[in-house]
């Protein structure tokens, strides 16, 4: 059970290791808070849909499983979308298009197909939590770096004095690509070093 949880955090981290579900990673991470909330919204969908799909795995015929999974996922996404619209309207307008697009996030469908369709409800839910949190920390880290360098603040709190020069490019699309590329290189270096010390 513990293994199911930690796998998503590091060894099979969806962003840095599996390189899936990258669109929201790049698009919403202008600030740390946006990254965190997008991550948590995806985590919620992931836990609910993994648990329900695992519950229904013996009822869904193998031939139509992909459309059935998509319907389950789309239902939970619609719920999250409507709840956020009602209670967090500011956040909802910032994340905008990328909330409904959780439906086509490969992480959710990927975990449904690769894990939830074969394992018990509890294990699937735990796997969902691990993968979701792995995705969340990646988004929050990228958001924090871009917010710090791009607008000199962190979680909305200004850290640099008024009028300090910031790297405006970090808030623009090129900044997202370049930061993620460098972060991936860093993860590769850490893994290579771990392997070296292990052997």
């Amino acid at each position: 059970m513990w293994k199911d949880f930690v796998r998503g955090l590091w060894a099979d981290n969806p962003t840095f290791r599996l390189n899936i579900g990258l669109c929201p990673v790049l698009a919403v991470t202008v600030s740390a808070l946006n990254g965190l909330s997008m991550g948590l919204a995806t985590t919620l969908v992931l836990i609910c849909s993994s648990a329900l799909i695992s519950l229904l795995k013996n009822l869904i015929p193998a031939k139509v499983r992909i459309p059935a999974f998509i319907i389950v996922i789309a239902t939970f996404v619609t719920i999250v979308d409507l709840v956020m619209h009602a209670y967090l309207p500011d956040l909802h307008s910032v994340l905008g298009l990328f909330i409904p697009l959780i439906v086509v996030n490969c992480i959710v469908l990927g975990r449904a197909e690769a894990f939830a369709a074969k394992h018990s409800v509890l294990r699937s839910a735990v796997d969902g939590i691990g993968m979701g949190l792995g995705f969340t920390w990646a988004l929050t880290l990228l958001g924090a770096i871009r917010e710090l360098l791009g607008s000199g603040s962190l979680f909305g709190m200004a850290l640099l004095p008024e009028g300090a020069t910031t790297l405006g490019i970090m808030s623009l699309p090129p900044g997202a690509f370049i930061t993620l590329g460098l972060l991936m290189a860093m993860m590769n270096m850490i893994t290579a070093r771990q392997k070296k010390t292990a052997s």
Binding site: N19, P174, G175, A176, F177, I178, L180, G181, L182, M184, A185, N188
Partner: peptide, 9 residues
């Protein structure tokens, strides 16, 4: 993937 992202940037 790392260099691919930087090129994309």
């Amino acid at each position: 993937v790392g260099i691919a992202f930087i090129v994309a940037g």
